[in-house]
Design a protein around this nucleic acid. Sequence first.
DNA 1: GTAGGGTTAG
Length: 383
Amino acid sequence: MRKSSKSASTYQALESLSRKNGLMEKSIEYVLCNSLSSCAKIMNWHFGVQIHAYTIRSGYEDNLFLSTTLVDFYAKCFCIVDVRKIFRAMKVHDQVSWTSLIVGFSANKLGKEAFFLFKEMLGTRIMPNYFTLTSVVNACVGENKVVNCCPSLHVHVVKRGFDTSNFVISSLVDCYASCGRIDDAVLLFNETSEKDTVIYNTMISGYCRNLYSEDALKLFVEMRGKNMSPTDHTVSSILSACSRLAVLVEGKQVHSLVIKMGFENVFVDSTMIDMYSKGGDNDEARRVLHQTSWKNTVLLTSMIMGYAQCGRGVEALGFFDYLLTEQKLIPDHVCFSAVLSACSHAGFIWKGKEVAKPRPIVAALKPSGGIAKADTCFHCAVR
DNA sequence: GTAGGGTTAG
């Protein structure tokens, strides 16, 4: 545990608060639990570890509520080693602590491990509830290397009677679709009687993910026919489908809907720019980019791709320069691919060679949203 | 009065 003056003062403040107010033992537990939970939400590791230290010193180490909150806290701060340590040191577990552990591993992108922890849980006397099942199914989204994880979890969902919970079902639809089992996802979606907006969104995104763009559009029409209001999730997926199909007319209709509904979201703007770029309307894509307050690598890569595909290499490279020098973003592999494609289409061989030349990363550059790893990323300045 | 769960971008 690292020490800092700020953390030490937190610890002293806790002791002083406890003494001054003469807090009852039960009240201290509540205070510690709530404080830890707040630290987890804002990912304040420094305050959280001091509360942890105070918990140990005050003899609350074996408190189930506090230990569970600690599991959640360390998971949200991406300290997975501590998550494991806290959980294994607990003398008693319950459904909530097991679920928190599974959620923690899932949030740390350890879906496969979360699945095996669920299997371990089944070997205990504590049975999963629908929170647990939603969490483990959600952890397995995209984990197609875990053989038959979706059907295996589906069996548990049905066996325990949670197949009426939309939370569980939407996760399962997403899990099937993300593992490439689109037919199973559709089957489950069709079997669900009370479909809400999230389940529709999940199925639409599942179709998009598996490149069934027309089916995504059809489902969107069905959703609208049922007077269900689309959300920012819906329009992001639909714009992505329009982009893949290069259907500008339909895309513009969705754009009107976005304005009418007042969506202000980076995903919506990103898919909108991509839709106009792939549809060949670079000027409209530029207008959307100009209006949006988000300027990240994904948005700018779409602009670069759009100009690249119609052979406007100068504009494409101009956006790459803007990304590097003005926005100080880190280009990732998709961005480099777009820039090289622009160089290729425009015949800028020497510039392409310059872009491909690796140079050490500049410390001041902002990360591109966790896509590129800093130690493997290179940048070059195209002037 | 304290802990855990679903859908979106290049």
